[in-house]
Design a protein around this nucleic acid. Structure first.
Length: 342
DNA sequence: AAGCTATGCAACCGCCAAACG
DNA sequence: TCGTTTGGCGGTTGCATAGCT
């Protein structure tokens, strides 16, 4: 038996709010406030609405100083940065953008920013795969399979790598101050996890997709390149810049430039694989010239609220708390993963 | 002009955790 | 301590509209 509903659904109006209802609710709250009890509010106001519905309407639409649409580039940058750092915590992100609601930001991310950043093809792939086959029902939900990956986490990882590469694929070799944009050991560990799961899933699904070293490649060239890049980093730890500072590796202090691998056939190989996708979105469209994602302004006010560190020299945000990346664990199947299996 | 598809967004649903008795 | 209520949140749905064929 489930929990009791918050209101009598049979006697509650649903759907879009009329201007009259808006006016009624607004007038009441302006005069008396919410009274600290949303459930009781509709009755006081004289509305046949669920208390939750009133709350949502007030917070997302009627509340003073709400902005709708017209997101600025700076707001775009903040949303992208925070999404990559903390994921879909829309209320936290909204708290950094005065006048914006979590719902608005969520919608804006889903309908604009995600596409802008990741491109449209992957969206199409994702929807094509989503639960068409009854045997796959729920397979794209994070909670279904303990041995697969969170789509949100992987999406963030993909964005992170993509954005890093977008800025300068070899910044961590050439510019000590630019490193780390992501904690290297953690990144390597998570990449290993992802790649292992990709392999496991390919085997278990008997996928026709060949290994990446073969001539038969999946349809999405950039995903291939990302995977290729990831494999290079995992297979050749000397290519992965090491953090040699005295702290936990998440701060910006005491970082030294990573050691270059000597030799370097392996680096040449890495260069080659990275060249395949740098400056491209998932379709291979060039991004370099028309996108700048990291805020150039002062992000200091976000640090304390979010547990983030902000490297003002590079404009990158990363967590001071290692647990912030716990979602990279194997908790769900990814869209990225699915596109690789095509 | 009609039908179809894609897109954007408001609103709903259900879960979770805090507050409360 | 436990059960219930409520607020808050993120994910999802469904409708209106735009754009395309």
């Amino acid at each position: 038996m489930g929990r009791a509903p918050c209101c009598d659904k049979a006697n509650v109006k649903k759907g879009p709010w009329s201007p009259e209802e808006d006016a009624q609710l607004k007038a009441y709250i302006d005069e008396y406030g919410t009274g600290g009890n949303w459930i009781a509010l509709p009755q006081k106001v004289g509305l046949k609405r669920c208390g939750k519905s009133c709350r949502l309407r007030w917070l997302n639409y009627l509340r003073p100083n709400i902005k709708h649409g017209g997101f600025s580039e700076e707001e775009d940058n903040i949303i992208c940065s925070l999404y990559i750092s903390i994921g879909s915590r829309w209320s936290v992100i909204a708290a950094q953008l005065p006048g914006r609601t979590d719902n608005d930001i969520k919608n804006y991310w889903n309908t604009h920013l995600k596409k802008k950043l990741l491109g449209r093809k992957r969206q199409a792939n994702a929807s094509r795969y989503s639960s068409k086959d009854p045997n796959e029902e729920g397979s794209n939900r994070d909670s279904q399979s303990p041995s697969s990956l969170s789509s949100s986490a992987l999406e963030r990882l993909q964005l992170h790598i993509q954005l890093q590469t977008l800025q300068d694929p070899f910044s961590f070799y050439n510019n000590p101050t630019a490193w780390p944009k992501m904690h290297a050991p953690l990144l390597r560990e998570k990449l290993s996890q992802i790649l292992r799961l990709l392999d496991e899933n390919r085997q278990s699904l008997n996928s026709p997709v060949q290994s990446l070293s073969s001539n038969s490649l999946p349809a999405d060239p950039t995903s291939v390149s990302l995977e290729d890049y990831a494999r290079s980093l995992v297979a050749e730890p000397s290519l992965m810049p090491e953090v040699r500072g005295a702290d936990d590796g998440f701060g910006t202090s005491n970082m030294e430039a990573p050691t270059m691998a000597n030799g370097d056939e392996s680096q040449a190989s890495l260069n080659q694989s990275m060249d395949k996708f740098k400056y491209c979105d998932v379709h291979g469209n060039s991004l370099k010239d028309n996108l700048v994602w990291w805020p150039s302004g002062d992000g200091a006010n976000m640090k304390s609220e979010l547990g983030l560190s902000w490297d003002s020299s590079t404009g990158n945000v990363f967590p001071t708390d290692p647990g912030m990346f716990q979602e990279f664990g194997p908790v769900g199947e990814s869209i990225w993963h699915r596109s690789l299996l095509e």
